[in-house]
Design a binder for these strands. Structure first.
Length: 578
RNA sequence: CGGGAUGUGGCUCAGUUUGGCUAGAGCGCAGCGUUCGGGACGCUGAGGCCGCGCGUUCAAAUCGCGCCAUCCCGACCA
């Protein structure tokens, strides 16, 4: 491919709309353009990368025994009514009606349609397991699309579904995908981690997320240095610590705390550590209000609260609810005398002499003993894990890291098969519901995640496995006939070798070519100009390390082949699952 | 949906506070010339219903009201 022919409108300046690195670089590198909020057009370079990602995903899915199909994007509302998700999925489901006034939606995921396909044909355990997948476009009307391709409304996804006759078989399907995902992310050249995850709205029994490690990640993962434990903080359980003896606690005493709202402000004002302050949050769970208590230096985990209460939804209560419950403005809630069910985190249990809100304007209570002065409904694991907590499996040291969720696998169980009557006859001739699993990979998100993880001040640093081209050949002297003739010769040679080469044949200054080559993130830069031609060499440089070597023109085929394979090997040793 | 911000040539932004006469700069684009190994320089030129609507005024990019769009922070998720 010739640069002069390629539609890559690179930009010197970053469009104001972009905030995160991947979004900025995708725009600057001429890979994507925004159509409207959350909807992006992929230009040739981006599409080349996406196709490489898809090819790796496809080959590993096929290898795992999954068969590719392609389902419609538009789905009938009736199917969603069968599983109850027409009511429960929420506004992310874009709904509309056809000319006959029938309900339809754009597919945000395809459990219903895939299961409809399977239930129509499968009658016997002999036809199971059935493992299918597809690669196509999903639409979710996100509340807030952001970060370019990281959270678009329309995106490319690989979604796979398994149908098994028994739980044991379903677990095999799940493990097959777990292993395949490992191979996929290794082959993509990324640093990633599989973590235990919450199942969220998809539902099911258990799940793992595959996280690309990057500072811009929206998720926090906790992992152990000593054992294999790794989990999304949403999910990571906190083990209850040994109960410590409480000190002798004086009687509770109200103190004025004007202008102090946050835990830090209270702690400073009253000269106590934040660990001795109790955070009281009023939550609304399925329409009922409850109070949740955590230590001042801890964060409430709403998913854990939801699980403890067995609630469908849990949210922070609105200010008027808080004011009605505490008879005070927001910021002064406390457990003493509060007429609500009160759930407290384990960490508060063993100690006393706390500072809490006073349920009155500008007032807090000191010397609170929760067991003496408040009525705690129950203690439980209600907060996010911290680096101070021991590993819940082995007691080892916990670390936290940011990650971008690029894959998620779920053991669904019979949630959908039961609702949709996806049944089969077993060996005994008894009708059973199939056991399902579903397995997603965000293809277009991987493009963004790869850039978040691999970039520098000059631009993108693509892993060679997914780079839009294997190398870029810079003609530094397009007006010089000898140089140009030699460049053309090398270009043809590379094409004949099957190397995906981008020839920068533009009549531009050297600096422009170097800048664009860096920006695009092509792993290998080959440079030929008057100087190098005189020496009989081509300069090659590694986009990642910036290390330059000289390849003799005389022995170009072999020296290039060795060089490229070295670059690839370097990358594959970097990709890891930690 | 709540909170914050921004809308001015293709891109980045100035001008808006204190209304004023042909609306500016840099980049990019077209032409000519000089340059040519890390985003060159000079000259010439094209390109703007100043987000949209209504209003105030002799006069609106600038003031008021309404709407729309985009971005950021929260609840969602591949």
């Amino acid at each position: 491919m010739r640069f002069s022919q390629l539609y890559v409108p690179t930009l010197k300046e970053t469009p104001a709309e972009a905030e995160v690195v991947s979004h900025k670089l995708l725009l600057r590198a001429g890979m994507i353009r925004k159509l409207t909020a959350g909807l992006y057009t992929y230009l040739p370079c981006a599409l080349r990368v996406l196709k490489k990602i898809e090819a790796i995903v496809r080959s590993e899915m096929d290898r795992a025994g999954f068969q590719e199909v392609l389902l419609p994007v538009v789905q009938p509302g009736d199917l969603w009514k069968e599983t109850g998700r027409w009511e429960h999925y929420g506004k992310e489901l874009l709904r509309f009606k056809d000319r006959n006034d029938r309900d339809y939606c754009l597919g945000p995921t395809h459990e219903e349609v895939m299961t409809d396909l399977v239930r129509g044909e499968v009658r016997s355990y002999r036809q199971l397991p059935l493992r299918l997948y597809q690669l196509h476009t999903k639409f979710r009307d996100e509340i807030r699309p952001r970060f370019g391709l990281m959270r678009g409304r329309e995106f490319i996804m690989k979604d796979g579904y398994s149908y098994d006759a028994s739980v044991a078989d379903a677990e095999k399907s799940y493990q097959l995908m777990h292993d395949a995902y490992h191979r996929i992310f290794m082959r993509l050249g990324l640093r990633f981690r599989a973590v235990e995850a919450d199942t969220g709205s998809i539902g099911g029994n258990f799940s793992h997320e595959f996280m690309v490690l990057a500072d811009a990640g929206e998720d926090t993962i906790a992992f152990c240095h000593n054992c294999q434990f790794a989990a999304n903080v949403e999910r990571a359980e906190v083990v209850e610590q040994e109960v410590l003896e409480g000190v002798v606690c004086p009687a509770a005493q109200a103190v004025p705390t004007p202008n102090a709202h946050t835990v830090e402000e209270i702690a400073n004002l009253l000269q106590v550590p934040t660990t001795k302050v109790v955070k009281t949050m009023i939550l609304t769970a399925d329409g009922k209000n409850v109070a949740v208590l955590v230590r001042g230096d801890h964060e409430v985990n709403l998913i854990k609260v939801q699980r403890l209460l067995g609630a469908e939804s849990v949210d922070l209560a609105s200010p008027d609810v808080v004011e009605a419950a505490t008879k005070a403005p927001v910021g002064f809630a406390g457990p003493c005398g509060l007429d609500l069910p009160i759930y407290a985190d384990f960490a508060l249990k063993g100690q006393n002499d706390y500072v809490t809100g006073g349920n009155a304007k500008d007032t807090h209570l000191m010397h609170v003993d929760l067991n003496r002065d408040a009525k705690i409904t129950a203690y439980g694991d209600l907060r996010n894990i911290t680096t101070q907590d021991p590993c819940p499996r082995c007691g080892g040291q916990i670390s936290l890291a940011k990650g971008i969720e690029v894959g998620h696998i779920f053991m669904l169980g019979q949630k959908y098969s039961t609702a949709m009557h996806a049944t089969f006859l077993n060996e005994e001739g008894v009708e059973k519901d199939m056991i399902m699993g579903c397995y997603g990979i965000g293809i277009s998100r991987i493009l963004a995640a790869a850039i978040e993880q691999n970039h520098d001040e000059h631009g993108i640093v693509f892993p060679p496995q997914i780079a839009p081209f294997n190398c870029i050949l810079l003609n530094l002297d397009v007006v010089n006939p000898e140089v140009t003739a030699k460049v053309e010769e090398i270009y043809k040679l590379l094409c004949d070798m099957g190397v995906e080469v981008l020839l920068d044949d533009r009549d531009e200054r050297a600096g422009v070519k170097f800048k664009d080559a860096d920006l695009l993130g092509i792993p290998i830069q080959l440079v030929l100009g008057k100087k190098s031609l005189a020496k009989g060499i081509i300069e090659a440089s590694d986009r990642q390390s910036k290390v330059k070597v000289e390849l003799p023109i005389a022995d170009f085929v072999k020296s290039y082949t060795d060089y490229q394979s070295q670059i690839w090997v370097n990358w594959s040793t970097q990709s890891s699952s930690l």
